[in-house]
Every structure is written in C-alpha cells, then in structure tokens.
Amino acid sequence: MPFATSADLPASVRHHLPLHAQDIYRSAFNHAFEAHFTDPRREEVAHRIAWAAVKRAYFKDDGMWVKKPG
C-alpha cells in the first residue's frame, strides 16, 4: 500500500524521523512497492528498502535521527 503523504506513514516512522527523512522513506517505499509487485513479501521488502534509503542520508545519534554531513 503506497503512502500518499507523510501523515500516512506508520507511527514508528512518523514519530522517529525528521520530515525530510520521512519524505525519503515514503518515496523509497512507494518506488520499491511498485517495483516488487510480483514478490509475495512486497510490503516487507519495500519497508527494508525505505529504511536503507533513510540510512544513506541519516544516522542515529543519541536516539535521534540526524542528517549526515555533506
């Protein structure tokens, strides 16, 4: 199920990620969800890919997600 807005994201994402990171997550999830339409684990795969996309741009510091420098 693709997410139309960041408000549609799971609470675990909305409550922990900054807005820009939520946008990255939503975009990556939606793209992966469409790209893996034949995979029976489509939603699980899309969530994993979305988290990986966030981790390329952000890191966790003292429990908070912070944008990587550069």
Rank of each mutant, 00 (worst) to 15 (best):
M1P: 13
M1N: 12
M1C: 11
M1Q: 10
P2Y: 06
F3R: 08
F3E: 07
F3H: 15
F3V: 07
A4G: 09
A4V: 13
T5C: 07
T5A: 11
S6Q: 15
A7G: 10
A7K: 12
A7Y: 07
A7S: 11
D8G: 09
D8N: 14
D8I: 06
D8V: 05
L9V: 04
A11C: 06
A11T: 14
R14C: 01
R14M: 04
R14F: 03
R14A: 03
H16K: 08
H16W: 04
P18Q: 00
P18L: 00
P18V: 00
L19P: 05
L19S: 11
H20T: 05
H20D: 12
A21W: 00
A21R: 02
Q22H: 02
Q22Y: 00
Q22F: 01
Q22I: 02
Q22E: 07
Q22N: 03
I24A: 06
I24L: 13
I24V: 15
I24H: 03
I24M: 05
Y25P: 01
R26Y: 04
R26C: 00
S27I: 04
S27N: 11
A28R: 10
A28W: 04
F29E: 04
F29L: 06
F29Q: 05
H31Q: 14
H31G: 07
H31R: 15
A32Q: 11
A32P: 08
F33E: 09
F33D: 10
E34N: 11
E34K: 13
A35H: 09
A35S: 15
H36W: 11
F37I: 09
T38G: 07
T38Q: 14
T38I: 13
D39P: 07
P40R: 13
P40G: 10
R41P: 04
R42F: 02
E44G: 10
V45S: 07
A46K: 11
H47L: 08
H47F: 13
H47W: 07
H47Y: 12
R48F: 06
R48L: 12
I49F: 04
I49L: 15
I49W: 03
A50M: 09
A50P: 10
A50E: 06
W51N: 02
W51I: 03
A52N: 11
A52C: 05
A52F: 05
A53C: 07
V54L: 05
K55N: 11
R56G: 08
R56T: 14
Y58M: 02
Y58I: 01
F59V: 00
K60F: 00
K60M: 10
K60Q: 15
D61M: 01
D61L: 03
D61S: 09
D61E: 09
M64W: 02
M64N: 14
M64K: 14
V66G: 04
V66T: 07
K67R: 15
K67S: 09
K67N: 04
K67W: 00
K67D: 06
K68C: 01
K68Y: 00
K68T: 00
P69R: 04
P69E: 06
G70F: 01
G70D: 01
